[in-house]
Amino acid sequence: MLRIGVLGCGRIGRMHAANIAAHPRTKLAAVYDVNRAAADEVAAMLGVSALASADAMFDTSDVDAVLIATATDTHVDYIERAVAAGKPVLCEKPIDLDLKRVDRCAANIRGTKLPIMIGFVRRFDPGHAAVRAAIHSGELGELHQVIITSRDPGMAPAAYIRVSGGIFRDMTIHDFDMARFMLGEEPVEVFATGSRLVDPGLMAETNDWDTVTVVLNTASGKQCIINNSRRAVYGYDQRVEAFGFAGMAISENRRAHEARLYAEGLTDRAQPYLHFFIERYREAFNAEIDDFVDAIESGRQPSVVFEDGRLALVLAEAAMKSVAERRVVRTSEIGGGNV
């Protein structure tokens, strides 16, 4: 049983802690949060220790690996400390909001053989993975376009929006990773447009957008179109479509069940979409842990590595520059090559 410690006991940290505790191949070793009450609550719920400091998580021999689900500005420090302590890492996205800081981290940990995994969990969704498999098997022929729809059920709290780093670094970054995952080529051009339609006041205050569209182009001409909204009244909207010379593959939304009701005055009434990411990607979060454990036990690198996190942030920076300057931005302007 791999003993994993969880840093961060907010919403996603609590979920990860519970998943690790229930997973057949892992044991929750300990938890830590700067909010001691939150850590104590999770620790009591799952029957583990709440450590008094992050140092204790890295120093103890009772923790084999760490999962980082703390505030984004702590990720780089904790990744570097985990590597120094010889502990494999699964870190939530993004690595950081500052690409230069990410590049310094890459330089500081270069040469390590430890598995360092970034939490782009959507790669592990069964439907999304099946679309990618159809692309790579050749069933769709030459790939022409990928279309990604990602819409939250409602605005995050204002306090979160203010520290999130903006929609491209916080929300669309999952879609940038999905684009790379599906395309099989690096996007070299980015064009983005943003609007303030859901909460114009908050978005203007934070110099952010709540409704965005992004077009990515690869060197060979493959396209990806991403559309995002911070508010979809009908639920959490997550779809991926791949279109090629010989066909199309679609990964649809998920519901609690697939029954449909047909009656006088209505047809095809169905259950609402699963509420948010924890419910929608439940299977994917478990598969992500499987991949992390497999990487550690086999000595291979995980399916989503540090550089994947870095290149998704490059695309986010390019999109921000594109919106600000109203032009196509080449990723080479941002730092698109590997460090």
Rank of each mutant, 00 (worst) to 15 (best):
Arg282Pro: 04
Met45Cys: 07
Ala192Asn: 01
Ala21Glu: 08
Val188Lys: 06
Ala38Pro: 12
Gly221Gln: 07
Val323Met: 01
Ala246Asn: 11
Arg132Tyr: 12
Ile118Asp: 02
Gly8Trp: 04
Arg300His: 15
Arg300Gly: 10
Val305Pro: 04
Arg326Ala: 11
Gly201Asp: 01
Asn253Trp: 14
Arg11Thr: 10
Leu99Phe: 15
Ser303His: 07
Leu46Val: 10
Asp290Gly: 09
Glu252Asp: 13
Thr172Lys: 02
Arg327Glu: 01
Pro115Ser: 13
Gly119Pro: 14
Gly127Arg: 13
Arg254Ile: 10
Arg280Gln: 02
Glu185Leu: 08
Glu80Leu: 01
Ser49Met: 06
Ile289Asp: 09
Ala295His: 00
Gly221Arg: 10
Thr26Phe: 08
Thr206Trp: 01
Ile161Val: 15
Arg3Val: 00
Gly165Glu: 04
His16Pro: 02
Asp40Trp: 13
Arg151Leu: 00
Ala21Ser: 15
Glu264Ile: 13
Thr70Gly: 09
Phe277Lys: 05
Ala43Lys: 10
Ala56Ser: 12
Ile334Gly: 10
Leu51Glu: 04
Gln223Asn: 08
Arg169Gln: 10
Asn338Ile: 10
Ala43Ser: 14
His23Cys: 15
Gly86Ala: 13
Leu46Asn: 10
Gln271Asp: 03
Glu142Leu: 11
Ala219Phe: 02
Ile147Asn: 03
Ala179Leu: 10
Leu28Met: 09
Ala156Thr: 05
Gly141Ile: 04
Arg269Met: 13
Ala44Tyr: 00
Ala44Val: 02
Pro272Ala: 14
Tyr236Phe: 15
Thr206Ser: 06
Gly337Thr: 12
Met117Glu: 03
Asp62Lys: 03
Leu2Val: 06
Pro94Cys: 03
His23Gly: 15
Arg310Thr: 06
Ile161Pro: 14
Ile167Val: 13
